[in-house]
Structures are given as C-alpha cells and as structure tokens.
Simulated assay, not measured.
Amino acid sequence: MLVKTRYFGEIDLAEDKIITFENGIMGFEDYKRYTILFDNEGGETPVISWFQSLDDERLAIPVINPLIIKEDYNPTVEDASLVSLGELTDENLIILLTMTIPSDIKQMTVNLKAPLIINSTTKKGAQIIVENKDYEVKHKVYDKFLKLKEQKGAE
C-alpha cells in the first residue's frame, strides 16, 4: 500500500506494518493508524525512529526506546488498560517514548509519563498514563545523548 509520509515521502508499506491505536493518541484521538519508520541507510538501527500517522501524513512524532534514556524504566500501569492489545509477552511488547525536539536541542525531552505500548503480534497499540509518580512528562535528555555519543566514540 502506498502511503505519504512527512519525512520519507511516498513509501510502499506492507499491511503488517500498520499498528492500530483504537483510541488514537493524546491530542490526536481521531487518528488510529500508525507505523514506525526510520532511516536505515547506514545499516545500523537508529536511536530515534518516527511514529508516522497513516491518517494524516503531517503527523510524525520522534520516538525512542525508553531503556536508552532510563535503563531502569519500568512503568506501572493498570492491567485493564492493556486488555484491548491482546496478550503481552516479553517477545511482543514494544514500549516507545514520544520526544519533543525544539529548535534548541538542549531542551529536548521525552515523555516518561505516557508511553506508547504496542503488541507486535496483534499490531495494536495504546498510549497509557503510567502510575509512577517520579516519571515526568518533559524529562530532559540532551545530556544523556551526549553521554551516548561519548560512549560510542570510545568503542
């Protein structure tokens, strides 16, 4: 299926790459179909991917694996909020954090409070508000990226 995207132009997307968010995501409740895109020209899996709406090509949100930012990330959620996704296991559970990257990248943040939870088997997802009191909506990450770059340079 051909889809238009914000940063990658028109792409041919396989049906099994479509993730359905029955309730949409916060602020975009009417948009239900998404995919995850990334630039893989260098051959490495990128740190940041794009959560691309298939209902509106202009909606593309940078996302990241939470363990890159916070190694002990362990969100507490009500089980009832995940029932619609199907049975979640270590093998099919994908958790992503949305990012905000302003023009001053030193102010870049991730949302630890409302991760995207995806079941890769059922291709269903939901954005959940976690119960953890110490998780911020705007957790600054610029310093973490500097440390990652230093570590990569040392290898």
Rank of each mutant, 00 (worst) to 15 (best):
P62F: 07
V130L: 07
L85G: 08
F145W: 09
P46T: 13
R58Y: 03
G9I: 10
P62W: 11
E131S: 07
R58A: 10
Y31L: 15
F51S: 05
I95E: 08
K106H: 10
K17N: 15
N74Q: 15
I18H: 09
K4L: 09
E29M: 11
V137L: 13
K147Y: 07
L112P: 00
T5P: 06
K4N: 14
Y31A: 03
A114I: 00
N74I: 01
K138M: 04
D16I: 02
V77H: 01
S103P: 00
V63L: 03
G9T: 09
K149Q: 13
K17M: 09
F145N: 03
A80L: 09
F28Y: 15
I25M: 05
V63W: 05
L96R: 13
K140R: 12
D30R: 15
I128Y: 10
K149L: 12
D55N: 12
S84N: 13
G42K: 14
E22Y: 07
V77Q: 01
N132I: 04
K17D: 11
E155P: 00
I95L: 15
I18K: 14
K140M: 00
D56T: 05
L82P: 06
E136Q: 14
F51K: 06
Y34I: 04
D55A: 06
G86F: 05
P46R: 14
I129W: 03
I105M: 14
Q127P: 02
I94W: 10
D90V: 08
I61P: 03
T98Y: 03
Q151F: 09
K17G: 02
D39Y: 06
F38H: 14
N40D: 12
L59Q: 03
K32P: 04
E57C: 01
L148T: 05
A14G: 12
Q107K: 15
D16R: 11
K147F: 06
S84C: 08
P66I: 05
V83W: 07
N92M: 11
P46H: 08
I95K: 11
K152F: 14
D30Y: 10
L112R: 01
L146S: 00
W50S: 13
I95Q: 11
